[in-house]
């Protein structure tokens, strides 16, 4: 007695499931990931770009802790310029296009910051 048919059916089911990322784009259609768009006329961010990309959340949280716990609102960027530590007042002034900037990355990587439950999103300009 052999059960080859059932075993091969199981193997086929496993392969179909395991290769989901390979056939899903063919079925679901692939959308290119949007690039985050910089709209400000300024040349630099508050820290070097590579560092911002990887650890802006840590910077934001250290700003928050500094403001809320120490009452210290002034930050010196690498060039020694004083910057006010503020999410709405600083980050979002240079990056007012939240949907095209912050969210473009966050959606692609399934990040949902809870900040906007309290902080006010900048009004999108068309």
């Amino acid at each position: 007695m052999y059960d080859g048919g059932k075993i091969l059916a199981g193997l086929a089911a496993f392969l179909a499931l395991a290769l989901f990322p390979f056939w899903e784009p063919a079925v679901g259609g692939r959308v290119a990931r949007p690039e985050p768009k910089i709209v400000t006329a300024e040349k630099r961010c508050v820290r070097p770009k590579a560092e911002m990309r990887q650890s802006h959340m840590e910077l934001l949280v250290s700003w928050r802790d500094s403001v809320v716990r120490q009452g210290q609102r002034s930050y010196r960027d690498p060039e020694g310029k004083a910057v006010t530590m503020s999410l709405e007042g600083t980050c979002m002034r240079c990056h007012p296009n939240k949907a095209e900037f912050c969210d473009s990355c966050h959606t692609a990587l399934v990040v949902a910051p809870t900040c906007w439950e309290c902080h006010i999103e900048p009004k999108e300009r068309a």
């Binding site: 007695m1 052999y2 059960d3 080859g4 075993i7 091969l8 193997l11 392969l15």
Partner: peptide, 12 residues
Amino acid sequence: SARVIGWARSPV
């Protein structure tokens, strides 16, 4: 797949 096919070819 080779391992599973090997098992599939074995008698119950």
